[in-house]
Design a binder for these strands. Sequence first.
DNA 1: CGTGTTGTTCAGTT
DNA 2: TAACTGAACAACAC
Length: 261
Amino acid sequence: MPELADVEGFRRVIDSVAGSEIRRVEVLDAGVVHNVSARRLESSMRGHRLGKAVRTGKWLVVPTDGPALIFHFGMTGSLKWIDDKSERHRHDRVVFVTNHGELRYRDQRKLQGVFVAKDAHAIGGIVGRLGPDALDIGASDFRSRLETKRSSIKSAMMDQRRLAGLGNLLTDEILWRAHIHPAKTTKAIDDGQWRALHRASQSVLHTAARAGHTPRGPRWLSGVRSDDDARCPRCGAGLKRTKVAGRTAVWCPVCQRPATS
DNA sequence: CGTGTTGTTCAGTT
DNA sequence: TAACTGAACAACAC
C-alpha cells in the first residue's frame, strides 16, 4: 500500500494526535525495530510528546520533545490510531501507548519498520539520499531530475533519489493519465509529453494525497488494475501487463502506444 | 508446491 | 560510471 499518498494519510493521523504523551511502548515484534533495540526504543521514547510529522517521499519523521521516530512502511505497513479498546490486530508490531490512545505500527510483511534518530535533523544515515518530494515539484525540476537518467520513464519515476514518493501504482496511474508508455525511454519524451507528464503527476498526487491513498474509483487505473480481464477506464481496451523496471506495469495499448522505434 | 505482491538494497553483470 | 537483473528480506493469498 504505502506510496506517497498513503504515507500522507499516516502523516495526518499523527497530526491529529500531536501533543499526546507516550506512556509506554510495546514492541510485539522486534523484527520491525531497526536501528535500536526494543528496550532502547521503549526507554528513549517514554514520557515524550508527539510533534507534527513531516513526510518526505515514503518516509515519515515524527519529532517529539525527545528523539524522533522514523517510519518506513515497506509494502504492507500502516499507522493506526486507536482510541477505544479495540483488540490488537495480529500484525500490530509496535504499539505506542499514549495518554489519549494508542498509535499502532501494523505491518504484515515487515520489510521496513521503525527507526529512532537523535532528533528530526539527524535522519541522514537512516533515510539515505532522497530526491525532492514528488508532490508540488515544479515542471522544470521534474523534467530535469528525470531526463538525466537514461532508462525507461517508469524506472526514472520510481527512483527515490530523483523524485521521492512514487511507487508502482502511482507511477502507472500517472503514465496512464499522461498517455505515455511505461517503457518509453526518457530521452524519447518530447516537450509536450514532459508537460503532460508533470501535469498528470500533480493532478494524481494532489487528489491521492488528499484522499490519503491512491483512489480506486472507476476513473482510475488503480481501480481496475487487479481485475481479471482489466479494461482501460478511458477507452475500454484490454489492459496489458508487462515487466518494466522489475515491476509489473499495467498500461493501455491504445492510450499509451508502445515506442515505435 | 508454485506464483505474485503498492518497497528497498545489494551482488553481479552488461 | 550507469543501468539492468535477480535475489533477498517476510508473510500471505491464490
